[in-house]
């Protein structure tokens, strides 16, 4: 992009010098150059991959957008629909009532399976990851499988793995009577990831590459998978984004 711009800029100068330059045009040109410099620095700054985000991920309709709005405004939205684009906003996270709190950049990435490939770019920039999961669906094996697969892909992301980005498993919708307990959710996820690990790496893809079995834990691959053994620190807690009960989540958000 930068070369392209230099090329265009020289083109502009060449053309200008070829003709007699009026004062007005010179000023205009200067203005253009200043604007360009500003835009270039801006673009460069944006391109920098700083790990500063609080990333909210999780399967579709688990309550990510509700949690995001809860963090943004301190109250839940009336209703939400399936997100298509990520939400991104600076939010002030407070520990308690009188607390001044700290400003965090929060991103809520859509959970639909088809959009998952775009998640990597955000995982690269994440400082903390909240994995939201619907604790009502843990009697449905398909949903559990999807959640486990997603969680594993987050934990096995090279960037997450390298920087040991801490992950919080937020068991949402705990206000409902039929919500499963955090322990149960964790156990199901561990079990499902275990199955997943035993089936990873079969077919190579059309490019010739295959997914290698990555060890995301500190113990050997033969051991049963435990979230506690993960290289990235995994914590968990029940919460209700709709009712605003984020007690278990707050310490994780405010921790350094």
């Amino acid at each position: 992009m930068a070369e392209e711009f230099v090329r265009v800029a020289t083109e502009v100068t060449n053309v200008t010098t070829a003709r007699s330059i009026g004062l007005a045009e010179l000023v205009l040109l200067l203005l253009v150059i200043v604007c360009c410099a500003y835009a270039i620095t801006k673009a460069l700054l944006l391109g920098q991959k700083k790990r500063s985000l609080l990333l909210i991920v999780g399967p579709a309709s688990s309550g990510k957008t509700t949690l995001f709005k809860q963090l943004q405004y301190g109250e839940a939205p009336s209703s939400t629909v399936t997100s298509v684009v990520p939400n991104e906003e600076d939010c002030r996270v407070r520990q308690g009532e009188g607390d001044q709190g700290q400003t965090v950049r929060v991103v809520d990435y859509p959970g639909h399976v088809k959009l998952r490939s775009g998640c990597d770019a955000y995982l690269q920039r994440a400082k903390k990851i909240v994995f939201v999961t619907d604790s009502l669906v843990y009697n449905d094996s398909d949903s559990v499988r999807e959640a486990a697969g997603f969680l594993f892909s987050v934990l096995a992301n090279p960037g997450v793995l390298r920087h040991r980005v801490p992950v919080f498993i937020a068991c949402n919708k705990s206000d409902r009577m039929n919500a499963f307990s955090v322990e149960f959710v964790k156990r199901r996820l561990e079990k499902e990831i275990d199955v997943l690990l035993s089936t990873v790496g079969g077919l190579s893809d059309t490019k010739g590459g295959g997914d290698d079995l990555v060890n995301i834990t500190s113990v050997g691959l033969g051991e049963p998978f435990k979230l506690a053994n993960c290289l990235s620190k995994v914590s968990s807690g029940a919460m209700s984004a709709l009712k605003g009960n984020l007690k278990t989540l707050k310490p994780y958000l405010t921790a350094a």
């Binding site: 939205p77 009336s78 629909v81 859509p110």
Partner: peptide, 13 residues
């Protein structure tokens, strides 16, 4: 009838 954003929040319905 609903008006919502691509981000997923319903603005008016």
């Amino acid at each position: 009838f609903s008006i919502f954003t691509l981000g997923g929040s319903v603005l008016w319905s």
